[in-house]
Design a binder for these strands. Structure first.
Length: 112
DNA sequence: TGGATGACTTACA
DNA sequence: TTGTAAGCCATCC
């Protein structure tokens, strides 16, 4: 049984899907919630694979600075910003304004 | 099998 | 202070 560990991607998806509307999270926060604080890259990697899933609001996941670093991976560089603004977030130059206000930490809102 | 990659983070010079 | 470098872990070729 190699599946002693649940798909890392699946865990990331679960957390990302739990992000409330109008809120955003960070790679590091999700990684830390999954138990691997230093695996922020894995979260981003999982997001890359999340393109197969349409239910993954990857636009709600940004880097630690609230910057839309993943916008380049969207069909359009403005798709990510548009989705966030549509949910009530404010984006300024590919960066979330009041980021700390819309920041959603899974480790604090979700119960392990 | 081993090396390389990745939408990041943190530490040190 | 700014810039460079390494570290993290899983997946892909």
């Amino acid at each position: 049984m190699k599946q002693d560990k649940v798909n890392f991607y699946d865990m990331v998806y679960q957390v990302v899907k739990l992000i409330p509307e109008g809120r955003v999270s960070t790679y590091g926060a999700i990684a830390a919630y999954l138990g691997s604080k230093g695996s922020a890259r894995m979260v981003g990697w999982a997001m890359n694979a999340s393109h197969q899933q349409e239910n993954i609001p990857a636009h709600r996941v940004v880097n630690r600075f609230g910057m839309l670093t993943g916008k380049s991976h969207f069909p359009d560089s403005s798709t990510m910003r548009r989705l966030l603004e549509k949910e009530g977030a404010t984006i300024e130059q590919d960066q979330i304004k009041d980021f700390e206000r819309v920041f959603w930490d899974p480790a604090k809102h979700l119960i392990p």
